[in-house]
Design a protein around this nucleic acid. Structure first.
Lengths: 161, 161
DNA sequence: CTACTATAGTTCGTGACACGTACTAAATCA
DNA sequence: TGATTTAGTACGTGTCACGAACTATAGTAG
């Protein structure tokens, strides 16, 4: 299963992977697809995650660290590099003089929007092999897994702080 | 969609993600799950991929670079560090005096086996929310996507060199 | 067979990235 | 008010990925 990225299973058309193997392989495939797509815009995966998070919120550095599950000092570096590229700005917080909120610049926003569109097209192409009904079924199953996992882990889905 | 890791959608039970969003979120969740699990064994994702590839083959360094889609010099570093930890060994090739094959040590093999078992349990737990029939359906759909993608990209699934 | 070209793997330099520690200024608590 | 906690940064360190340069080896062409 952790050999998944190298294509070690599914040797026959119609041959079925174990569910865990399949999920692992699919996740590596999706990640790789995303990685390649965003690399065209000189973005790494973590930078992409940063820009993605900032699409609909302006968190403090501290909140960013929590959202991205990174150490504070790592976020400093990440935001520094994005700021250097003109993709984000730090705005002094109105609530705490020690604190900054982080926002996308128009350039950052258009960059992530463009990359996202490309990635969506990539994945949609991958799913073209499935009939519409199967795509819907896949979507429903995945949503169920994700929703349950989020609920079990107390994820606050709309935190903006 | 690239904000997926932060849990930006699926605000209601029963609410459905778009397929692309769901896939992206699921892939990040699986990756994160794997990353955490292997970190318990002081392994990074890329080291895990290396050990995973070596479970059933002994490639040359060059072949490793191709399998892992990395630059030659990156593979040198990766194998150096794994060798330093006693997880792999370089064996002079019998076919080319410039070349080495790379093999797992018993320690490396047991480490990756243990990590894999943990990860499988993690994912299986995640899928417990689905009835058995739905798990089978998910597995079938994923397999179809993967098999088709592999076929379209000329993946040689069992290369050993 | 010889000269030329290509290649395996390594070294080196560089930048990105993640962590932990230490620090200062600001905020909070007792 | 003094003590404690916290936001964010600087710094050191290790991992990781890339590209350029290099040497010894292999392959090719004449």
């Amino acid at each position: 299963m952790t050999q998944a990225p190298s294509g070690s299973a599914a040797s026959d058309h119609g041959r079925r992977l174990s569910t865990v193997d399949g999920l692992a392989q699919l996740s590596f495939l999706i990640q790789r697809t995303l990685e390649r797509r965003v690399a065209e815009h000189d973005l790494s995966l973590i930078q992409t995650r940063l820009l993605g998070v900032l699409r609909d919120r302006q968190p403090t550095m501290n909140a960013l660290a929590r959202l991205l599950d990174l150490d504070k000092s790592s976020v400093t570096g990440l935001v520094d590099r994005a700021e250097r590229r003109g993709l984000v700005v730090r705005v002094p917080s109105t609530q705490d003089r020690r604190s900054f909120t982080v926002s996308l610049t128009p350039e950052g926003r258009s960059l992530v929007t463009e990359a996202a569109a490309g990635f969506e097209a990539d994945v949609a192409a991958m799913l073209d092999v499935l009939p519409l009904a199967d795509r819907d079924a896949l979507s429903a199953l995945i949503s169920q897994v994700l929703v349950t996992h989020a609920a079990q882990h107390g994820v606050d889905l709309f935190a903006t702080d």
